[in-house]
């Protein structure tokens, strides 16, 4: 598939989960394809980074479901921050662990998972849709008829589609991460009705163990509906061991949040480049040759 083929499978109003974490291994070529499209009113579920910031900046995200939105070396995502402060996007802000349990519940097709996270904090006030449950079991050390503990029921974060980026994959959709952390990409795939996966390189199935152990094959084709080969597809986020974050590019992106003219120039030059190859060609033209390889 191409990025545009993936976008053709999506529609406005969908709830879309995006893998990676902050400014790390984000499926950026797929995100840019959404930015070039007419898709709108999206609910975006993400351990947020520039994916969230960009979809806020173009106004295509109606709601963000998140625990944080960060660029790592720039702690606050400036486009997201601006959208929150101007009230142009709705927010479902959860504890980071509660967010994980929501994905897990969706993956396991149960309505919720219980947790103590959120009790005592403002998470419940900020999210009036959240409910608590009372454990049907007595507390540890309690008697049989002692009342059970009250817990927060984190509802399943069911996704219409998930977008993830892997280091390698085979053509049938078996994905491989070669960096230090998978984050939640496998759970995003399992929580979604359909999952589309970009990767740095498509390899033959019999080559999947050439670069990593069996432990790196955490996304089986069972949970994947389409594969896109996108070298440097996570740029400008990091994608170790293939490449690090392009900090110069990220800083340039971040600076556009307070500068409409700079945003317009950035948008037309990079985001509207006609396809991933055109984007890569524009990176080549940068004085630094397009950042780390």
């Amino acid at each position: 598939m191409t990025e545009d083929d993936v976008v053709a499978e999506l529609s406005s109003g969908m709830t879309i989960g995006i893998g990676g974490w902050a400014s790390r291994r984000k499926p950026m070529s797929l995100i840019r394809a959404i930015l070039r499209s007419d898709l709108k009113d999206l609910t975006v579920v993400s351990y947020g980074g520039p994916d969230v910031g960009l979809l806020c900046a173009t106004g295509q995200a109606r709601r963000i479901v998140y625990g944080f939105v960060s660029l790592d070396t720039i702690p606050l995502e400036p486009h997201f921050r601006r959208a929150r402060q101007e009230g142009t996007v709705e927010a479902t802000e959860l504890d980071e662990g509660a967010f994980y349990l929501g994905l897990l519940a969706a993956a396991h097709r149960v309505p919720f998972y219980p947790t103590r996270a959120g009790l005592g904090s403002d998470m419940l006030a900020m999210n009036p849709q959240l409910r608590t449950v009372v454990s049907p079991y007595p507390p540890d050390g309690g008697e049989g008829d002692d009342p059970g503990e009250e817990l927060v029921a984190i509802p399943a974060l069911r996704l219409d589609a998930a977008l993830i980026h892997m280091n390698r994959a085979d053509a049938s959709g078996n994905g491989q991460f070669l960096g230090p952390d998978l984050y939640f990409d496998d759970l995003f795939a399992k929580a979604a009705a359909r999952t589309f996966m970009s990767c740095e390189r498509i390899v033959d199935t019999d080559a999947l163990l050439d670069e990593g152990s069996v432990h790196t094959l955490k996304v089986p084709r069972l949970f994947v509906d389409g594969v896109v080969e996108a070298p440097r597809g996570a740029h400008f986020t990091e994608c170790p061991p293939d490449y690090g974050r392009d900090e110069a590019f990220q800083a340039e992106y971040a600076a556009t949040a307070g500068d409409p003219a700079a945003w317009e120039a950035f948008r037309t030059h990079y985001l509207e480049a006609d396809g991933h190859d055109a984007y890569l060609a524009r990176l080549e033209q940068r004085t630094d040759g397009g950042g780390p390889r």
Partner: peptide
């Protein structure tokens, strides 16, 4: 007025 880091993991 100012969006900060978010709840992060503090509630848990």
């Amino acid at each position: 007025k100012a969006q900060l880091l978010g709840l992060r993991g503090a509630p848990g």
